[in-house]
Design a protein around this nucleic acid. Structure first.
Lengths: 335, 335
DNA sequence: TGTTAGCACTCTCTCAGCTAGAGTGCTAAT
DNA sequence: ATTAGCACTCTAGCTGAGAGAGTGCTAACA
């Protein structure tokens, strides 16, 4: 793979990303200043095809990048692109409203990313489970209803209405919350469940009744709907590779399945990651690419952020956006 | 319009709803026991076309119902269908979790309806604005943050985190909430804004600073994202009339525009309403039908519920579902 | 030896023409 | 009033030809 092959591959992929049409030697020679004739380029393309970087839809069409071609492009050729000022501003301002609820963050993030990239975007919340309890309070609502407000050590707030037995009045509830917070502050949420159900634990039996109601909620928090936010799914309709309605259906329903979460969570390493086409080994998105990143929250609690597009994706742009947003999100969640 | 014409029209529409293919006289004679020959049916069909109830895609295709045809079918021919037990149960159980947040209700309702009907469904929340204040409380969160919890006279709860000035400690906040609730209980939310901004009002100037923060939130509540919930948009991909990607795009983006809310809110009358094709005078949904209903909450505060599908919709089934759900919702919101 | 011009070849896309099939509308018989 | 029969119309689908784009190979060239 000499320098000229690289330049040919780069030009071809750039052109294909821009046009979605197979690229021929003539086009390449004309539009990109490669300094050689179409015939020479043809030879190079034949080599690149033999090396597995290019595919041919049929004999008399131009070439198209293969998964391996894109991979090489992403890893070795492509240079990161700087976001423009407006985009940076957009990202910086996205989290200025001082909401502290997790589902708001993931919703906002998914929308931000899909609007910036013009691709569908999916954000997975870090498991609430791993965070520690910081504070618990109750707000009586009348009608035997109470609003339970949970604050985590990561600074987030979640709340839920609960029905409580008749004999819990406001005073009792407040004392309960204080006792509870004193006893369990700093304990991880998932740990909490064991402690409460453990009969050897001290004088907490009187909370049990109430807490069991709360347990249900905590459990829901872990695997509730709020955990994943999908934004901009319709964006894929703008790309010609999704002219086929069945493909649209396959991909979009994939995004609503539970498997996405597993897929996204699988790649837990730092930094921006790219998955190209069949690399995901998911049938439904054989010809889609994913750009993923993680964000952190109070230590090692980790959430995920993903963009899905056609393999012919503007990788550098999308990667820059995903990186910038995940960093901003980590920053905001830390402060 | 004699009895036989009615039967022909009914059979034709039933068949077209089932198959999405233009219906010919032969098919009608064969599949529905009309007791007459295709030739006779042809004559009736010619009459029905002249009367405007049917259209012809082209000379040698069968007939297709026109808007007027569907209208007559819905108003005069079609009989309501009873939901089966499983569906009734499904609806009854949908609201058993005792959440009291409006956005939960609309989200849940939209999902329920789209799953039952297999069409996209949209639910518009009643304007928070019209409800009266029942109770206000604050939960301190540390970091100068506070959770503001608003309870309305309709029994719903909304909450929002706010940043507050340094000098509001827990005690001060609690007293503030008590004073506030005492003074403004029963006042409509939209009225509240005027009262607070009115300098002639009594000794409330000390709340102003805090409340102005809250005002922003209340304003957002009125026209925030939580006001509308769309579920099952992908369902339309299952119907052959949406094989064209541009039509899908037109319709789905219509559902995300602000105009839907206006359209839905326009028909404020009781009971289930049907809008067929061009009756909506909305270009983007020329060949879609809408089934809409309202639900009530604490008197006359009204929300809306809508199903969108192809004109070739299973009107009786969808109408039954929409009616049952809106009634159940009204019932639940009342208790 | 690497590059290039030339050229035959291959494959797809499009368009016109044709056919089969479905359905109609009219006429005449019942 | 109903129906059988039949000519007519229109579409969907197939076929074949031609244009166009692009390739791969060969031979000439620097």
């Amino acid at each position: 793979m000499d320098a000229r092959k690289r330049r040919v591959l780069e030009a071809l992929i750039d052109d294909y990303i821009a046009t979605a049409e197979p690229v021929g030697s003539r086009t390449l020679a004309r539009k990109y200043g490669l300094g050689v004739s179409p015939a020479t380029i043809r030879n190079e393309m034949a080599d690149l095809e033999e090396l597995g970087y290019l595919d041919k839809p049929h004999t008399s069409a131009g070439r198209v990048p293969s998964d391996k071609g894109y991979r090489y492009y992403v890893d070795e050729i492509m240079r990161p692109i700087a976001l423009d000022v407006a985009e940076r501003e957009r990202i910086r301002h996205a989290y200025q409203v001082r909401v502290r609820e997790l589902h708001w963050f993931i919703h906002q993030t998914a929308r931000l990313v899909s609007e910036l990239t013009q691709y569908p975007s999916l954000v997975v919340a870090p498991p609430m489970d791993d965070a520690a309890l910081a504070d618990l309070s109750f707000v009586p609502l009348g009608d035997d209803m109470v609003l339970m407000v949970l604050k985590t050590s990561t600074g987030l707030v979640e709340n839920q209405t609960l029905a409580v037995p008749d004999d819990f009045d406001a005073v009792k509830l407040q004392r309960l919350a204080e006792d509870f917070t004193r006893e369990f502050r700093g304990v991880a949420i998932h740990e909490l469940k064991n402690r409460i159900l453990d009969p050897l634990q001290g004088d907490i039996s009187r909370y049990r009744e109430l807490w069991q109601l709360g347990l249900k909620w905590v459990t829901e928090l872990e695997e509730g709907e709020d955990k994943v936010s999908l934004a901009g799914p319709l964006n894929i309709l703008n790309y010609p590779e999704f002219r086929d309605i069945n493909k649209v259906r396959r991909v979009l329903s994939f995004l609503e399945k539970e498997t996405v979460v597993e897929l996204v969570s699988r790649s837990a390493s730092d930094g921006v990651q790219v998955v190209i086409g069949a690399e995901s080994s998911m049938d439904d998105i054989q010809d889609c690419s994913l750009v993923m990143a993680t964000y952190r929250m109070g230590g090692n609690v980790v959430g995920h952020l993903m963009v899905l597009g056609p393999r012919r994706m503007q990788y550098n742009r999308v990667m820059s956006i995903v990186e910038a947003v995940s960093e901003e999100l980590t920053r905001v969640l830390h402060g």
